[in-house]
Nucleic acid binder design. Sequence first.
DNA 1: TATTGTTATACTCTATAACTATA
DNA 2: TATAGTTATAGAGTATAACAATA
Lengths: 165, 165
Amino acid sequence: MSASKRSANAMTVDQAVRDTLLRQFAGYRMKRAYLLVQEDMIETLAPFGLRTVTFSALAVVMGSPGISQSDLSDVLNIKRSGVVAIVDELEGAGVLKRKPVKEDRRTNALTVTAAGRRLWDKVEKAVQDHETALFCDLSPAEIAQLRDLLGRVRRTPSTDLEAEE
Amino acid sequence: MSASKRSANAMTVDQAVRDTLLRQFAGYRMKRAYLLVQEDMIETLAPFGLRTVTFSALAVVMGSPGISQSDLSDVLNIKRSGVVAIVDELEGAGVLKRKPVKEDRRTNALTVTAAGRRLWDKVEKAVQDHETALFCDLSPAEIAQLRDLLGRVRRTPSTDLEAEE
DNA sequence: TATTGTTATACTCTATAACTATA
DNA sequence: TATAGTTATAGAGTATAACAATA
C-alpha cells in the first residue's frame, strides 16, 4: 500500500507530488537528469567493454594523440593515480598504448591503436544514437540550447573564496 | 611543462581544446555542470550540518509530513537500508523525528521538528542564493528554460528493454 | 627540488542480503 | 507470505600519501 508502483528505474506517480520542494532547484533536476544519462550510458557502453570514464579517456586521447597521463588526469578531472587503472584497462583491451617519450623518459605518450580507432567510430555513433533517444522529447534546437545553457553554468569566484556572510 | 595551470577546481585553458570530442555530447556537459552544482552544494550545506542527501530528505519530509522511510527511499531513489543512516543523521541533529504509527507498528512516520522547520527556511534560502550565483550567466528566463529542458529528459521504453541490434 | 607514473591504503557512497517484528 | 526497518557486509569509485625513476 501507498507508493507501491515499483517501476524498475524510479519515478513513481507519487514522486512528482513528493519532491515538489526539491524541483524548484535546477540543481536537483540536473542531478535526476544526469542520473538518467549515466544509467543509459552504462548500458550503451557495456557492449563495447567500456565504462563512462574509459569512454571519456578514449575520446580525449583520440582528440589529443600523444597526451601524457598527467595531462589526461587534468582534462578528465581525475587524480593521476586513478588514471593508471583507466589506462591499464584500455591498454589491456588493445584500445590504446603507452609509448615512451625520448625527450622525457618519465612520461608516457598515449596513443589510440588502429583497433581503438575502429572502436571509437562505433562507440561515438552508439552514444550519439542513445542521446537522440534520451532527448527524444526535445527538438534539435532545444537540445542545442540545453547544451549551451549547461556550458554556461559556472562557479563564481566569490563562491570559491568561501567568504560568506 | 604543458598543462600546468593547476587551477583548484579544474578547467585549464587546454581543457577546452582537449575535450572537444566529448563536448559534442549533452551528457558530458551535463556531468560537468552537475559536478559544479554538486561541489557548490557541499559548501553551501556544510555550515548547516547537511549533506546533499540529508538536504533532499529534509525537503521531502517537509513536503510530505508523516511519510514512511520506505516511501522516502522511493522518492529519493535510495535503498531502504541507506535511508536508515540518513534518518539517523537528521534525527540525531534534532531536525526530524521517527514517530510510531498506531495502524501499522512496523512503520515510522517521519516528521520535521520545529527546529527542523527553522533550519529548512534558512537552508532553502541559502540554496536558492547559491543557485543564483551558479547561474549568474543565465537570465531568469534561461534558468527557467534549463529547468524545463532538464525535466524533459527521459529514458525511452525501448532503451529499457535493452533489445538492441 | 620538482614531476611522472605507480602502488598501497583509506574513505565515501551505495547496494545486497539476512534478520526482526509486525502485518 | 509479505513488508518496514534494521544491521552487517561488500563493492564501486575516488582521494591521499608515499615511493622510484627521471628531470
